[in-house]
């Protein structure tokens, strides 16, 4: 090792990252008084810098991120497909034609499209426009119902997106959502459903459903999401479930996430 190599190896030496043979070679350089002094100066500086304490991120960062993530995911599934993506989806659907549900779903969509086109053809005057709007709204609800019951997660997510964009809902649509909240096989869908239902959390029925979902949720991140929602109307249950989740996990990231959450532990 030459004197010019000091620049290359000095920091790794201080950080203990050199191999034993490199340590020996480097220490031979330190017989030079000037280099030894430089190393001591560097040591003083790096020791001081290492004592600069880390800070805990603000408690709301996590909830803000997950809320935006859920919105992003809903936007992703709701955004219109490009021509290439549509063609790709069409090719994909051809291979699924053996599946009767898929075929029935495609036929219903085609029928609805035809009805809308036919209605638009003859519309004139306010009364007809109002009537047409009502028909379209009804069709959208029917499409959402079909989507929410579809076997394809992307269709179900489209249904949830529709629900989350509306101000009010039919009982039937809410019932379908409540069932997805508990029974859907995808944690991703259950989280999005919980977020969509939370909009109506002033209703005791929705609160009960979210509490029930929290008690039954097996996915850790799904549970964390539900804890943050239930916390706003039943903090006692949220704290209890948070403690339970904390006791049952060895995942250090999840533990850290739970411990730094704004809900206080008992």
């Amino acid at each position: 090792m030459k004197k010019e190599d000091f620049e290359i190896y000095a920091i790794d030496y201080l950080k203990g990252e050199l191999r034993p043979d490199q340590v020996n070679e480097f220490e031979r350089l330190l017989t030079d008084q000037e280099l030894r002094q430089q190393l001591e100066d560097l040591r003083g500086l790096t020791d001081l810098a290492s004592s600069w304490k880390n800070e805990t991120p603000p408690a709301n960062m996590r909830s803000e991120f997950y809320t935006s993530l859920a919105e992003h995911q809903q936007e992703e599934v709701a955004k219109p497909l490009s021509m290439v993506e549509r063609f790709d989806a069409f090719l994909g659907s051809l291979s699924q034609y053996k599946n009767i549900k898929r075929l029935a779903f495609s036929s219903i969509l085609l029928l609805i499209g035809g009805l809308v086109g036919y209605s638009l053809r003859g519309s004139s005057g306010n009364a007809e426009v109002v009537q047409l709007s009502e028909q379209i709204a009804e069709m959208q609800v029917n499409i959402a119902k079909i989507q929410l019951k579809s076997y394809a997660p992307s269709d179900r997510m489209k249904g949830i997106t529709y629900v989350s964009q509306q101000a009010s809902h039919s009982d039937e649509l809410l019932e379908t959502l409540l069932s997805s909240l508990i029974d859907d096989e995808s944690a991703h869908i259950r989280i999005a459903t919980a977020q969509a239902l939370y909009k109506f959390h002033r209703h005791s029925e929705i609160q009960l459903a979210l509490e029930k979902a929290l008690l039954r949720e097996k996915d850790s991140f799904g549970k964390m999401n539900l804890i943050s929602l239930v916390e706003t109307f039943n903090p006692e249950l949220a704290i209890k479930e948070k403690n339970r989740l904390l006791d049952g996990t060895r995942n250090p990231q999840l533990r850290e996430a739970l411990e730094s959450n704004k809900i206080k532990l008992n």
Binding site: P57, R62, F65, E76, Q253, S260
Partner: peptide
């Protein structure tokens, strides 16, 4: 995209 939650848990404090 759901998987980004774990990456967030691993790195958000370090990034902050």
């Amino acid at each position: 995209t759901h998987s980004i939650g774990l990456l967030f848990e691993r790195y958000h404090a370090e990034l902050y």
